[in-house]
Structures are given as C-alpha cells and as structure tokens.
C-alpha cells in the first residue's frame, strides 16, 4: 500500500564521509555505524482515534511503516492528514489507540508516562517549526537544557552544549538570547538542543516552515550533515517539496493512510 519514492542523495560519497569521521565530535560517535536495513522505527496496524466530545475522529487508520536506522525520510501530506499525530507517536509523546509502535526497541503503547519521558530523553531529538526556545536562556543554556536530566557535571554539560552549537555553526552566538538571533539562527539553536544528548532519532515537524528559502536551505544542509556524518535517523514532516528532496525517502500521508 505504501509507495516509497527514492531521491538522489545530495550527500558526499561514502568514502568521503568516512574521511569526515574524524571531524565528528567524540560525543556523537555512538551511532557511528548504523545497521543498514535494521528498522529503528516500526509501526504495524497503528490506529489513532481522538474524541471530540462523543464524536470519534480516526486520524491514523491502520498504518504500517518501517524506517531503517540511519534513514532520512520526509513525510508530506495535506493539512489535517495526521502527520504531526504520527510524528508524536513515533516520538513517544502519545500512544497508539491500537496497533504496535516499536521505536528503537521500545514498545510505545506499553510504556508508562514516566517511561515515555525517559525514552524521549534518551532517544528523541525534537525540532519544531516555531523553534520553541526558552527566551530567558542564552543559546548555550537552551542547548544545555536536555543535559540537566543527565548526571553530567556542569563543565561537561557546557562543553557538550558548545560542541553542539559549533556543529550547527553558532560558535559566535553562544551567549546570545533567542530574541537577538534570526529565525534561521534560532532554529540552529533548536537543532543543537535536539542533538546535544546524542539521540537516536531526530523528529522534525516542519522545521523550515517559518524560514525564508536561504535559511531553509541552510537548515536542510545541516540536517543532511547530521544524517550523513552523524548517522542520525531523521524523520521530517514538511510541506516544502524542496525540503522533501533532501530526504532519501518521501512518504505521503492522506486521510490517515500512507499512499
């Protein structure tokens, strides 16, 4: 039922990527060798039904999907088709009404709220359309936020946040507050925050939706780098065909089904 459209990879050939390995900071080498072909996201017969009062609304309807480790996939579809809902399930923010969702080896439907929170802290990096940075915190402090849940020392946290900001090209903006940054820069801070704890999967809900073409391309370039060099599995919801072109696979969601 699902058709996958494969695009030309816009990244460097494999050999060159290997040579880049030494540029990848120590803290991101965990997933250095993703198992190609091994599914890290596996949904089978997933249904999600919301209730508006007594009125049931089936947003996802028996959806099955498998995404392999190290993949970069785009998810497109009309507004209201359930893209964000699907993303939330994969990110462990919500549980399926029925069906099975196994993400990085965890059965999302069977986990408690507390377990889901720990799952997110460990495996998921979020990138939102509207950046969602804390306005009272500097770029560095925003990026450090996920590390407050770890046992790392404050110097180590700081070091890692700075590394993440360097990866996203913001080494000169570390002490700036969000309001002192452009939209593209804010999104880079958000991406640094999403990768600082070295998650397995990056979920992006219209990451370029609020950006102009140039900034959007820069962000997409950065995501590609994270996928190719840092071996992050990326799932990106987008309305922008140019953005979808960056992904290896683009899937289309319509009325709760992949087509």
């Amino acid at each position: 039922m699902s058709t996958e459209s494969t695009n030309e990879r816009t990244s460097k050939p494999n050999a060159e990527a290997k040579a880049m390995q030494s540029d990848v900071p120590e803290q991101y080498r965990k997933n250095a060798t993703p198992e190609r072909g091994k599914a890290i996201i596996e949904l089978s017969g997933v249904t999600k039904t919301f209730f508006r009062g007594k009125e049931p609304l089936t947003v996802l309807d028996g959806l099955s999907l498998s995404i392999e480790e190290g993949g970069f996939e785009a998810l497109m579809g009309p507004s209201g088709s359930g893209k964000s809902t699907l993303l939330n399930l994969i990110a462990g923010l919500d549980r399926p009404t029925s069906g099975k969702a196994i993400i990085a080896g965890n059965d999302i439907g069977a986990m408690s709220d507390g377990e889901l929170a720990k799952f997110r802290a460990r495996h998921i990096g979020f990138i939102f359309q509207s950046y969602n940075l804390m306005p009272v915190l500097t770029a560095r402090e925003n990026v450090e936020l996920p590390l407050l849940l770890t046992k790392l020392s404050s110097t180590e946290r700081r070091k890692r946040a700075e590394t993440a900001l360097r990866v996203t090209g913001l080494e000169n903006r570390m002490d700036h507050y969000p309001r002192q940054l452009s939209g593209g820069q804010e999104q880079r801070v958000a991406i640094a925050r999403a990768i600082v704890h070295d998650p397995t999967i990056l979920v992006c809900d219209e990451p370029t939706g609020d950006l102009d073409r140039k900034s959007a391309d820069d962000i997409l370039e950065l995501l590609t780098k994270l996928n190719v060099d840092f071996k992050k599995t990326i799932l990106m919801v987008t309305h922008d065909p140019a953005a979808a072109d960056r992904a290896t696979i683009t899937r289309h969601l319509n009325k709760g089904r992949l087509e």
């Binding site: 990110a91 929170a117 720990k118 802290a121 460990r122 969602n132």
Partner: peptide, 14 residues
C-alpha cells in the same frame, strides 16, 4: 504552557 510542553517533550517529567 508551551514552554512546559517543550520541557516535557525533551524528557522532563511532570
């Protein structure tokens, strides 16, 4: 509210 939601998404607990 939204900031709290973001914190929760990141993995902070209630």
């Amino acid at each position: 509210t939204k900031e709290y939601a973001v914190l929760r998404a990141i993995g902070f607990e209630p």
